[in-house]
Design a protein around this nucleic acid. Structure first.
Lengths: 243, 243
DNA sequence: GAGTGGTCTAGACCACGAG
DNA sequence: TCGTGGTCTAGACCACTCC
C-alpha cells in the first residue's frame, strides 16, 4: 500500500482550511512560509496549490500572492458537480433516484480493427458488446452501446450488467475508472430513437461518444450513448492554465 | 519579454513528433532518455509529459512506460479543441478559417436578479447585452447572446464587437479569460433558429450556456450560444485524479 | 529593493510491471 | 531483478508587483 503523498496531505489540509474560512482576507501565506509551516519543500507546496488552481478554488498572481477564489466560498454548490461527468448512475441521478437498467443484448465478439486500436487490443482479442437502456421513473432516456475487453473482466455475467459496470470493474480489478474522453454532439432522432426514447419527429438526441480509462491508463470501454435531449446536460469546467 | 519556457519547448516538440507519427509503436522513450536527448532535467520532461497527459494525448503506466493515446492519432480533429472550449474563434475554426461576426444588437441595461447573482454584481449595476451571429463560409452556425458587466469594459463600443470580445478584454484589462463553466445540452430548433441557422424542422440546435471568468476569478460574461447541430462538437477530457 | 510566484536543476528514494 | 514512472528535496535564478 502506498502511503498518502505529501502534496495530497497538504492539498486536503489547505482545502479544509479554505472551507473553514481560515483566510478571511482571501490571501494565503506565501509559498515559502507554507513550506516551512508544513515542513515540506516548496515544490510540494506548489504542487498542492496547483491542483487547487486547476480546480478553480484559488488563483495566483505573480508578484502579489495566492488568493482564494471568492466565487468558491460564495457558491460552493457550483463547484461540487464539476469534474464528475464519469458514470451514468452518478451523472443522471434525479432526485436521488438511480436509473434502472434494461439489458438488451450481451455477447462476446472479436474486436474489429477500430476497436482494437481504441482499446489497445491485439489481433483476435475479444470484447463484450453490451447494449443497454437506462430508465428513470419508467421512461427510457438513454440507449447505450459499449465495447469492453473480455480480458479485463473475464467473469462478467449478464446479471452484473444490471448494475454499474464501472463499480463492478472497480470491485473486480481494484482499479477505478477515473478518466474519460468524450465527444458531445447532437443529432436529429432516428426512427428507432423516436420509438425507444418516446421522442417526437422534430426532437433530437444528444450523443456522447467516447472512451473510458482505468486509473492506470488502460482503455476500459469505448461506447456511444444516445440520450433523450431533455436529459442531456453536460457540465464542464474549463481552464487554460499552463498552455 | 519572457523567453519560452523549456518545458513548453519540449512540449511542442513532442507534440509535433507525435503528430508526425514518429513513435510508430505508440511508445515514447523513457523520461530519463528524453531528459538526456533534450539536454534538460527529468523534471522538465515530466512537466511537459504531464501537460500532454492532461490533454489526453498520451498516458503513462508506471513500470511500463509512456504511450500515445491511439485515439489521438486516429482522430486528431477530436482533440483539437480540447481544453479549448473558451472562445468561439478558437473552438470553431475550420481549415484555419476564423468565423466572421455579425453584430445584431448591443445595449446597456440594468442587470436583473439572476444576472446579478451570476456576475457577482450589486443592485443597480449595468451590463452590456450583446447579440451576435457567427458565420463560416457565409453560413451562420451560431447565435450568441451575452451579458457583460459594464464596469469591466467601460469603453466598449459596437466596433469592438466585430472581433473577439475575449481578446478585447485581455488587451483592455490585462487579464485573460481563462476559465469557464458551461452547461451543454440540445434542443429542437425554434422557427427562428431554423431561419437564421438554415435548419430543417427536425434538425436540432446545440446549446452551450455558461459563465466565463478572468484569470483572477472575476466573472466576466454569462451567455448562451445556440449552435447548428453539425457544428456542435464538444470534446471533454475528464479526470478524477487527485480528488 | 523586497516580496512573491515561475522555472529549472541534479539527485535521491519509492512503487509498480514485466520477464 | 531491472526498467519505468512517481514523489520529494534543497537550492538557484528569473519575472512580475508593489512600495
Amino acid at each position: 500500500m502506498e502511503k498518502e503523498a505529501i502534496y495530497l496531505r497538504v492539498l486536503n489540509d489547505l482545502k479544509k482550511r479554505i472551507n473553514q474560512q481560515e483566510f478571511p482576507n482571501l490571501k494565503l501565506p506565501d509559498e515559502r512560509s507554507l513550506a516551512t509551516a508544513y515542513d515540506v519543500s516548496r515544490s510540494s507546496i506548489k504542487r498542492a496549490l496547483n491542483v487547487l488552481v486547476q480546480q478553480g478554488i484559488i488563483f495566483k498572481k505573480r508578484g502579489s500572492g495566492t488568493f482564494v477564489n471568492p466565487l468558491y466560498l460564495k457558491n460552493q454548490t457550483m463547484f461540487q458537480s464539476m469534474g464528475h461527468n464519469l458514470g451514468v448512475s452518478d451523472s443522471f441521478r434525479i432526485d436521488g433516484e438511480v436509473p434502472a437498467v434494461e439489458l438488451i443484448s450481451f455477447e462476446k465478439q472479436a474486436a474489429d480493427e477500430d476497436t482494437q486500436l481504441a482499446l489497445f487490443l491485439e489481433d483476435g482479442e475479444q470484447v463484450y458488446h453490451i447494449k443497454r437502456l437506462r430508465q428513470l421513473k419508467g421512461q427510457t432516456f438513454m440507449r447505450e452501446d459499449a465495447l469492453v475487453p473480455v480480458k479485463l473482466l473475464p467473469e462478467l455475467t449478464a446479471a452484473d450488467l444490471q448494475g454499474s459496470l464501472f463499480q463492478y470493474a472497480e470491485a473486480t480489478t481494484k482499479k477505478a475508472v477515473t478518466r474519460s474522453f468524450l465527444t458531445i454532439s447532437a443529432e436529429p432522432s432516428t426512427e428507432s430513437d423516436q420509438e425507444v426514447l418516446a421522442l417526437k419527429q422534430n426532437e433530437p438526441v444528444g450523443v456522447m461518444a467516447g472512451i473510458y480509462f482505468l486509473d492506470d491508463g488502460t482503455p476500459f470501454e469505448v461506447g456511444t450513448m444516445r440520450i433523450h435531449y431533455k436529459y442531456m446536460k453536460y457540465n464542464s469546467f474549463d481552464s487554460l492554465d499552463g498552455e
